[in-house]
Design a protein around this nucleic acid. Structure first.
Length: 266
DNA sequence: TTAGAAAGCCGTATGCTGAA
DNA sequence: TTCAGCATACGGCTTTCTAA
């Protein structure tokens, strides 16, 4: 703004700038207090430096509400009601000063002088008009905080239950170990003997099963051999009978030469 | 004619919320 | 846990209306 002012003045001349009669004002918004769409403006200020000085002071006030350089949503999450009220009172005082405090000087356009009471009353009216909205925001914030608190409590309860369960398991494990180590030597010997007998019995059962399988195999092999011998005997008998039949045919009394020369296919 | 007030629109930055 | 969508707070600019 300063540079633009100087450049324009050098361009058109000081007189032309004075004739132009440029004035400046600040348009200010305080959503929480006077509503999202409501703004307040300062009177027109003829001197740029005065306007910039006010702008700086309002910016400093606003900086107190800011988070990382900007005023982000959720003012109630970061600031207490007392802080917000304090900031608003300081803003009101500065705004009243901007409207009235320097009204008598040449810096502020004196065409419409205001009384401090009138400005304060106007601000109070705006604040009152937005009270329902503030109340709504406060209720919503309360609800959110309660939900958050409940969630934290549930998480804590879950963690506690898990820890309890872990402890119980550890204790139970410890008890079992303790009981094992507290047994008498005679009982330990008895247990050992019982274990040895159990293992011996298992070994005997395994050996008997193996033996049984071997015998079954041998029986099966014997059965196969018997069948083969029987078949061989049948075949032998059949061959003998065939030989005897042939001998009888060759030695019968009515044998002819034609028979001998192969009339019969033998 | 002009200052002031009110309101709306757009853009930016950020936080919150609920669904995936 | 992540992320899109919405809400919030504000700045900047414009327009409209009213009263002096």
């Amino acid at each position: 703004m300063r540079r633009a002012w100087v450049e324009t003045e050098s361009e058109v001349g000081v007189e032309a700038m004075e004739d132009l009669g440029l004035k400046f004002f600040l348009s200010l918004r305080k959503s929480y207090w006077i509503g999202r769409h409501m703004k307040v403006t300062t009177p027109r200020i003829a001197c740029l430096e005065t306007a910039l000085a006010y702008r700086r002071r309002f910016a400093e006030l606003q900086q107190a509400l800011s988070h990382r350089g900007v005023v982000s949503p959720g003012l109630l999450n970061r600031l207490s009601i007392a802080d917000l009220e304090d900031n608003w009172h300081r803003f009101s005082a500065l705004y009243i000063e901007a409207c009235c405090g320097l009204g008598e000087t040449q810096n502020i356009d004196a065409s419409s002088p205001k009384s401090k009471e009138a400005v304060a009353k106007r601000l109070a009216t705006l604040v009152e008009a937005n009270s329902a909205e503030r109340e709504k925001q406060l209720r919503a914030w309360n609800c959110r905080q309660m939900l958050l608190e409940e969630r934290l409590q549930r998480q804590a309860a879950r963690k506690e239950r898990a820890a309890l369960l872990r402890n119980r398991r550890a204790m139970s494990r410890e008890d079992r170990n303790k009981a094992r180590h507290q047994k008498l030597p005679s009982e330990l010997v008895k247990n050992l003997v019982r274990r040895w007998e159990r293992l011996q019995s298992q070994r005997r059962r395994r050996e008997a099963a193996v033996l049984q399988q071997e015998r079954a195999k041998q029986r099966a092999a014997a059965r196969v051999e018997l069948k083969q011998r029987a078949a061989a005997r049948v075949e032998l008998r059949r061959c003998r009978m065939e030989r005897e039949e042939r001998w009888r045919w060759l030695n019968r009394p009515d044998l002819t030469m034609a028979d001998l020369l192969g009339q019969r296919g033998l």
